[in-house]
């Protein structure tokens, strides 16, 4: 099957991701809602990623509405969980699902 990157939220380096920038879903990425969250598929690099919570799905969808990824996280994610969601976003940035804009 297509390259699976289950681990949007682990092990990814945050070097490429800057929470002070505005992010958006890549135009080549489609999101499909699923009971556990969503699947994200990037048509250009054929990567499939699991967004393994509804909160992460909604966060990703809302990214472009905020001036920065940090603001988007602060708006919808409880403080204690924010670091893990920022890591998830970093992983998504690294796999080309979201990008700074």
């Amino acid at each position: 099957m297509t390259q699976l990157s289950q681990g949007a939220s682990h092990g990814a380096s945050t070097a490429a991701f800057d929470a002070s920038l505005r992010y958006a879903l890549d135009s080549e990425v489609a999101l499909r809602e699923e009971p556990f969250g969503a699947l994200a598929y990037n048509y250009s690099n054929r990567r499939l990623t699991f967004l393994r919570s509804v909160a992460l799905r909604e966060l990703v969808r809302s990214l472009a509405d905020f001036d920065s990824a940090g603001d988007a996280v602060a708006c919808s994610i409880p403080e204690a969980s924010r670091p893990s969601y920022l890591r998830a976003l970093a992983g998504l940035a690294e796999s080309g699902m979201i990008h700074a804009c």
Binding site: S9, F36, R52, S53
Partner: peptide, 14 residues
Amino acid sequence: MPAERTRLVDQLAT
């Protein structure tokens, strides 16, 4: 994140 502790195999049961 909390949801990640659920194993994918269990999530797929639905």
